[in-house]
């Protein structure tokens, strides 16, 4: 205590005390709301405090485009009825808040932590329903049918995301992103809410069981090894052709040059035939 007493008149002490208090409050808050623990329950049950926090965050980071009451504007859609799942997907994948207006919002490191995302989600949900954030059980791939997932994926997803989930270009600068980083919950939410150019696959189009099968197929496909060697990006024959030209013919042309370059300066062994 003498250590503190000796320094409490110093200028930095005030800042240190504030910092300590903030950390303490944060930890207390985390303990109460269960940060990082069972996330889904935190997302679903929303208190008025959480909604208030979400409203404040929304006013700071979202309202510029989406409007003060999330009613939308000329550059951004209304979020009334968008639902918690849409917020969790858009903010959780870092797409929102938007850095710049382009044809497509790219995935980037999220600006908010999960707790703040839940707060914003709770606020947007409080404005008028919409799909809720799915629970861990809902998005679990355990015990799902990958064979059915394969058929469903090829019928519904592959035409944009590619057979392997590698993604591809869409019209007017939009694109279907690769499914290499999306979490189970984000895949589920994307199907549920149809972000960017993606259509909505609601629970009558793809039942919750179908969605889990697709998640199982996507996650198992991206995790599985490539038995034939390097994957070449899993984008089909384009890269194969590139490798055939550069690695195949390219290497063999070098070999041909080497083989024919090996000859004697004095033309020993050379013969001349008549036509």
């Amino acid at each position: 205590m003498r250590w503190i007493t000796a320094r409490r008149r110093r200028p930095f002490f005030g800042y240190a005390a504030v910092l300590l208090a903030l950390v303490a409050v944060g930890m207390l808050y985390a303990a109460v709301t269960g940060l990082g623990g069972s996330t889904a329950s935190a997302g679903s049950g929303s208190s008025s405090a959480q909604i208030t926090e979400g409203k404040n965050l929304f006013a700071v980071s979202c309202a510029t485009c989406h409007g003060e009451y999330a009613q939308g504007s000329s550059v951004a859609p209304s979020l009334i009825g968008a639902g918690a799942a849409a917020v969790d997907f858009q903010v959780g994948t870092g797409r929102m808040p938007l850095k710049e207006t382009n044809a497509e919002a790219p995935r980037k490191t999220p600006v908010f932590n999960q707790q703040q995302i839940y707060a914003i989600a709770a606020y947007v949900a409080s404005l008028g329903g919409g799909p809720a954030i799915p629970s861990d059980q809902q998005v679990s791939a355990a015990g799902a049918d990958t064979a059915l997932g394969q058929s469903l994926f090829n019928a519904n997803c592959a035409q944009c995301h590619n057979y392997s989930g590698a993604g591809d270009a869409l019209t007017y600068g939009k694109y279907a992103p690769p499914l290499t980083q999306a979490t189970n919950r984000q895949i589920y939410e994307a199907m549920l809410t149809g972000p960017e150019a993606m259509p909505v696959f609601n629970d009558t189009t793809l039942t919750p069981v179908d969605k889990r099968d697709i998640i199982a197929y996507v996650t198992q496909t991206r995790a599985e090894a490539n038995p034939g060697g390097f994957s070449l990006g899993r984008v089909g024959p384009t890269t194969e052709g590139l490798v055939a030209w550069l690695g195949g013919i390219g290497a063999l042309v070098l070999a041909a040059m080497w083989i024919t370059a090996k000859r004697r300066e004095d033309h020993t062994g050379e013969i001349t035939g008549n036509r």
Binding site: Y163, V235, P237, G241, W245
Partner: peptide
């Protein structure tokens, strides 16, 4: 599938 290309 997207990216449906033939061989080169």
């Amino acid at each position: 599938s997207a990216g449906s290309q033939p061989d080169f």
